[in-house]
Each structure stands twice: as structure tokens, then as C-alpha cells.
Write a protein that binds this DNA or RNA. Structure first.
Lengths: 198, 198
DNA sequence: TCCTAATAATTGACCGGTCGTCTAGTCGAC
DNA sequence: GTCGACTAGACGACCGGTCAATTATTAGGA
């Protein structure tokens, strides 16, 4: 089939735009028409790509988290940095970007967990999976830091990864209403620069 | 005016039910009709009590946080406990309640910060105010703990209060999708039982 | 103490709009 | 001609919000 490629291309464009709008306005406030108009795909075609809005959101969750996982993986592969330094570099990169974006949106995972995390089974599964993979990656970073002697050993990497992820999510919420990066910086300062240190 | 009392009574019932539904389904997924039906108040009467759905949500935010502030204040007035122990008692009380509620909802402040924190100015202000007051109270608890020698002195009470609040919000999101209290317990274990200790 | 008239409060039908979804029909490839 | 992919537009439901009509309340004159 020659048009399978363009089909996947269009699907990706829908997901790209969908992620942007879901991030900016949330699940229920984002209309399918809005997404379709933005990428100039007719309304009637939506269900050729996705079986429902809910499934679309679930796919958007995977589409959203993948680049973050790749970026953090990239930092971890930098041989010059230990695990903790890689995390610090990663998070300070994120902080730089939210400033540019004007503190809008935050994290799609956090927003959707709050809005539909306990009402949409499809999205719940996607969120569980995405969070688990993202968290695992941070656990690996911290484990490496432990092996390299920069991260404390008396707390498990898993529990520190959870704490980092949770605190970051909470800080993103604060960022949104306070329109400031201070909450994000504070989390990094408290955890990465202090609590996690060996 | 003799019916001012019943008016305030009905307004409170609307807010009570509104908080429940907003907590369960979020802002956009909750219809005014649903709230009104639940307390058997006619649709047309809504705007006698509130000028808009947005304003209603803003008032619901205050209505929601007040009992939490009162309860934490109560724990702080218990002379047998130091500030840190009061916080621990308060949070373990909260954990007990989310188990009963079946991990539904989470925290209205967190959910609304994520959903409309950067799109509704009215709610943003209400959220800012509510979070600030709630956070201040926890700061006071930690300050007291510092004076009593149970909380470390080399970190400011304010920054620890922020970290606790942020981590708790993140943990509530995890709780919703994982349908488990473990994230909440972990936060208490990591922060109240370890990081904050003197 | 009534009856009436003026005023205030209450309310359900209704508005324009948007939602997610579906189907009947178009159109291009072979 | 046949078939499958694509799509325009309709569908019913529901949204937040409004308003004319109804009901309740009050005040004053007899």
C-alpha cells in the first residue's frame, strides 16, 4: 500500500498537534475539530486514524513521553558525566525550556493524571506505562550515581526516582499558577543538589 | 431578610456537592446541571448564587481547602506533639481517608492547578491564595519543629514546606493512576521521617 | 383583619454553540 | 465495473448562560 506512509505521517501530525493542545488546554477542553483544523485534516477522517478521542489521548501520551526518554537517555550516554550530573543537566535543560514557553502547560502526564487518570481506563494504562518507563530511566541514572559514589547509598534509587518525579510534578503545578520557575529550581536544589548527594 | 440564612445554606450545599463532583471529574467534565440536580436546586437559580461557573469553581476552591487548614491547625494545637509529629499525624490521617475513598479524586487544588491553573484567571487567584495559606501553615509546623529540635535547621522551613506540598501533589497523581497509597506513604517516609529530621 | 396591587424572587423552557460520533456518498486506483 | 479509502455534513446530546413568565412576598388602604 503506497499511502500507508502518508497515513502514518498524517497520524503523527495529528498526534503532534494533539499533544500541544492537550498540554495547553487539557483533555475535555480540547475539541477534535480544533486539532483537525490545525493540521488541515477533514473532520470525517479522524476515525480513520483513531477509534476514539480517548484512544487518541492514550496514543498522545506515548507520543509525548518518547522524546523526553530519548533526551534523558542521551544525557546518560554522555561519558563525561556521572548519573547525578546527567540528571541535573537534563532538568536544567527542561527549566530553560519552560521559561521560553511562558510557563504554559507543564507536563502532559501530570495534567492528564489529574484530569482523567482515574476516569479513563485507556489513558490510565498509557499513563501508568509512560510514568513507569520514565521513572525507571531516572532510577537507572541514580543507580549509576550510586556506583560512581556521587549519590547516597542508604536510600534506594527507586525511591529517590519516585520522589524526584513526584516533586517535579507538584512543582510544575505550582509553576503554572505562580508563573515562575522557582518551584522547579527549588526541587532541583533540594533533591539533586542536597538530599540525593552521597 | 429572613431568607438570607437559607440562601447561604443552599449556597453551601451547592459548594459541598460542587467540590465532590469537581474533585471526581474535574472542571470541564462537571456540568452545572449535575451539581444542581444533586442538591435539587433549579437550574435557573444558579446565577442567583454565583455569577458564573468559573466564579463557582473559585469559591469551591476556598470551600475545599478550609477544612484541611482547620484540621492541620487542630493538630498543631495539640500540645503533646511537636511540629513534625503534628505533620506526620495529619498526613497519616489523610492517607487513611484516601484508602476509604478508593483513591478517587486526589486533591482539588492539584487537579484544578493542572486543568485550569493557567487558563482561568479567577481560579488561578483562588488557587494561589489557597496554596499559599496551606503552605504557610506547614511552614509554621516545620518552624516549630525546628525550635523544638526535631527538624533540621540547615534548610529553611519555607523550602521544606514547599517540597512537602509539591511531593504530596505529585504522589496524589501517582496514587490516582496506580490505585495505591504507596506513593503517599513513600513521600512521608522520605521527607517527614528522614530528610526533614534534625 | 382582609383584600388588592406593587414588587421581588424563583424557575423551567430556551438560546446559540460545541461536543464526539456516525453514515451516506464521493472519488481514485486497478 | 468494482472496491476500498476518504470525507462532508448531519446527528443527538449537552454545554453555560438567559429571560419571560410564574409564584411568593410585602405594603397600604378600608
Amino acid at each position: 500500500m503506497s499511502n500507508l506512509k502518508p497515513k502514518q505521517f498524517k497520524k503523527d501530525r495529528l498526534l503532534d498537534q494533539g499533544v500541544n493542545l492537550l498540554l495547553e488546554k487539557g483533555y475535555h477542553a480540547t475539541g477534535l475539530k480544533e486539532i483537525l483544523d490545525a493540521v488541515q485534516i477533514p473532520k470525517g477522517s479522524f476515525y480513520a486514524y483513531f477509534e476514539s478521542k480517548e484512544r487518541f489521548a492514550a496514543e498522545a501520551i506515548y507520543h509525548y513521553i518518547e522524546p523526553f526518554i530519548l533526551r534523558l537517555t542521551g544525557h546518560l550516554q554522555n561519558p563525561e558525566r556521572d548519573g547525578l550530573a546527567a540528571l541535573k543537566a537534563y532538568y536544567s535543560e527542561l527549566i530553560g525550556e519552560v521559561v521560553i514557553s511562558g510557563f504554559k502547560g507543564g507536563c502532559l502526564l501530570g495534567n492528564l493524571m489529574g484530569e482523567i487518570g482515574d476516569t479513563s481506563p485507556l489513558c490510565r494504562d498509557a499513563l501508568l506505562n509512560a510514568v513507569a518507563r520514565y521513572c525507571e530511566l531516572q532510577k537507572i541514572a541514580l543507580e549509576r550515581g550510586q556506583q560512581q559514589g556521587t549519590v547516597r547509598l542508604d536510600r534506594s534509587a527507586k525511591s529517590m526516582a519516585d520522589l524526584m518525579l513526584n516533586s517535579w510534578q507538584g512543582a510544575l503545578l505550582r509553576m503554572k499558577v505562580e508563573q515562575s520557575v522557582e518551584p522547579l529550581k527549588d526541587v532541583c536544589n533540594d533533591l539533586l543538589d542536597d538530599y540525593f548527594k552521597a
